[in-house]
Simulated assay, not measured.
Amino acid sequence: MPIPDVRLLVLDLDGTVVGDDNRITSAVKSAVQTVRQRGIKVAIATGRMYRSALRFHRELALTLPLMSYQGAWIQDPHTGVQHRHWPVDPQRALELLDYFEQADLSPHLSIHFYLNDQLYVQEMRPDTDHYAQRTLIEPILVDDLRLTLAQMDVAPTKVLAVSEDPEIVERMLNTLQKRYKKSELYLTRSAPIYFEAANPQVNKGVAVQYLAEELLGITPDQVVAIGDNYNDLEMLQYAGVGIAMGNAPLAVQKQADWVAPTVEEDGVVTAIKTWVLAG
């Protein structure tokens, strides 16, 4: 049953509107266009880099600021105005690098630093190549991330560690969540093989709240949010209706108000018809 006064629909990208083929289907595009024709705003909230997410923002012909890097970077593509940039404290980033480079972890990890919306890595591994192909971002290879961080004198927007073994990512998350308070770092997974660290004030829920309440002047009960992973939980909990995709982990599905079909089944279309356009 649709909520009575939807004003904003927020969509995650990968696993929600972007499937394995790295595309948005025509059915999803059509559904989003219909939502916009009804006068309902549509926005993207993603863990992707701003530059990587921009093409999907344009494909969907959206007008609102784009929430990227889990909401750490919020920018209006039309005006160029950056509404928010909350980076990771450089000292925390170096501590994470020390942890990742331990002998039992280092062989299994690709470490990504995001500086000024560019991706910096110390070595090219198969999982980094795959990441680059999916995001259409060319990594910048450097000899030493520590030196690069010092020379650029800029804080990283996000730190990402990629491992082909999801159990390693799970272990890192458990270890570091005990080591750091929530007031020190925001730690999450955006996929089973992606460990992400951001500014402690950052998460998609905070970003959507800013967009809804500060920029649009609407309330949580007027928001529908759709996502598929742990990094979507905060925005699903914030929204009046939080919808998980059928391909989401069961723990995420259990915390959602409703579960849509999978991304490969165009589950977003079903969710939109059920909760936004019906009635």
Rank of each mutant, 00 (worst) to 15 (best):
M235A: 04
H57D: 08
P139Y: 08
A256W: 00
Q133K: 14
T175H: 13
T157Q: 10
A260I: 07
T274A: 11
L62C: 10
G15Y: 05
V88D: 11
V159N: 00
Q255D: 05
L64V: 07
D221G: 00
Y114E: 12
V252M: 00
P200G: 05
K178G: 05
Q237S: 07
R171L: 12
R23A: 14
A207I: 07
Q253M: 02
R125Y: 00
D257H: 15
E167Q: 15
N199M: 09
A93N: 10
H85Q: 14
G205W: 07
T270P: 00
A132F: 09
E184C: 04
E59T: 09
T34K: 15
R7H: 13
V28K: 09
P87N: 09
I226F: 03
L8R: 08
A72N: 02
V224H: 02
R23P: 02
K41R: 14
Q91K: 15
Q75L: 11
Q201D: 15
M67Y: 03
S190I: 07
Q201C: 11
G242C: 07
M124F: 03
V121T: 10
R92P: 05
P220D: 01
E138F: 07
Y186R: 07
Q177G: 03
V81P: 00
D144R: 06
G267W: 03
E214K: 14
K204Y: 06
N247I: 11
R179P: 01
A197N: 09
P107A: 05
A244G: 08
A260Y: 01
R125V: 05
Q201Y: 04
L250N: 00
I111Q: 01
W86N: 11
R23E: 15
E184K: 11
L60M: 15
L187V: 09
Q209L: 00
K158L: 06
Y230P: 03
Q75S: 12
L216C: 06
V263N: 13
F100T: 00
L277N: 05
D221P: 04
Q222G: 03
D129M: 13
M152K: 14
Q102V: 01
T148M: 02
L9T: 08
K178H: 15
V6C: 14
L136S: 14
G19Q: 03
V121R: 06
G47C: 08
V252N: 01
M67A: 13
W86G: 01
P220E: 03
S106K: 15
I218Y: 02
P126E: 06
G227P: 05
G205T: 07
T157G: 15
L96V: 10
E265R: 14
R84T: 13
T270W: 11
Q177E: 14
H130M: 11
M245G: 02
V154C: 08
L94F: 12
M245K: 03
E234D: 11
L277W: 00
E138T: 15
T46W: 02
A198C: 14
E138P: 01
T16R: 05
L109G: 09
P220Y: 02
A61L: 13
T46N: 09
T157K: 01
N174L: 11
V208H: 07
Y210K: 02
P261K: 01
Y114V: 05
M49Q: 14
V252T: 06
T270E: 13
V88A: 00
L54A: 12
G246P: 01
N199D: 15
I74H: 04
Q255M: 11
